[in-house]
Amino acid sequence: MRRSCVIGLGNPDRGDDGLGHAALRLLAGTVAADITLLQRNAAGPGLLDDWRDFDKVILVDAAAGPNPGQIHRLEATSPGLPMPLAPGSTHGLGLAETLALAKALGRLPPQLVIYAMEGADYSFGAALSPAVAAAMPRLAVRLRAQLRVQSPVPAGT
């Protein structure tokens, strides 16, 4: 039995940056009990320890972009890591750098898929923006489908 985990990244007190944690709330209780759900505030080297024991890892994060609510699916193990999705400023490594570091150290999980949804509003204390809130059920459906597949699904699905 392959072990799976979903990691929601972001700050729940920063509007749409909280969509990763919100996705975990939608999944809780609706996916198999052996699937681990982890809330994390940001990417960084800590993720390498978080996913150490898992064969299949799904990361959910907010992304900058012009179409709030649009969902992007990225394969971390495919060539050409999504460096443009790196956050502009953090105390440490952004998601793209974390993935590059994991790759260099041979610590990427066998299967790693990233679901990034474009956000609109990252204000302090804000709720999810209407476009992102409306797209959350669609994101949850895709995450559940991803958890059911046994091997990486082709890009674009």
Binding site: P45, L48, E97, A100, L101, A104, L105, G106
Partner: peptide, 16 residues
């Protein structure tokens, strides 16, 4: 450090 990790992975792991 990411570029360095390929050759000096043990040290990067120690630092982490």
């Amino acid at each position: 450090a990411i570029a360095m990790a390929g050759q000096h992975g043990t040290m990067v792991e120690a630092g982490l």
